[in-house]
């Protein structure tokens, strides 16, 4: 059983037991192929989401396309 860690996701604090970005994305109920992720200020390429480990205190931005002009 993984120890939960604290992250900031989209500006809000969150506790998670996910160990990789892909795990977090799934935990949030999102589809990895419909979002893009920034991990501590750097783009996390989609091909690496299963491999990139999360650490306590990491900051993530998870974005997708919405309507706009």
């Amino acid at each position: 059983m993984n120890q939960p860690i604290s992250l900031i996701v989209n500006g809000d604090p969150r506790r998670t037991s996910a160990t990789t970005i892909a795990g977090l994305v799934r935990e949030l109920g999102l589809k990895p192929e419909k979002v893009a992720v920034e991990h501590n200020g750097e783009i996390a390429p989609r091909s690496t989401l299963e491999d990139v480990a999360l650490s306590d205190g990491d900051q993530l931005e998870i974005v997708h396309f919405v309507g706009g002009g």
């Binding site: 999102l30 419909k34 979002v35 998870i62 396309f65 919405v66 002009g69």
Partner: peptide, 30 residues
């Protein structure tokens, strides 16, 4: 044209633009 915004993590199952306007049929310009 489309905008890039944070996903609503408290309501991830909201319908999304891509379900209505197919990016394979129409070119998305972020």
């Amino acid at each position: 044209t489309v905008a890039v915004r944070r996903v609503n993590v408290s309501d991830p199952n909201q319908p999304v633009l891509m379900d209505y306007i197919d990016p394979k049929k129409v070119t998305y310009l972020p």
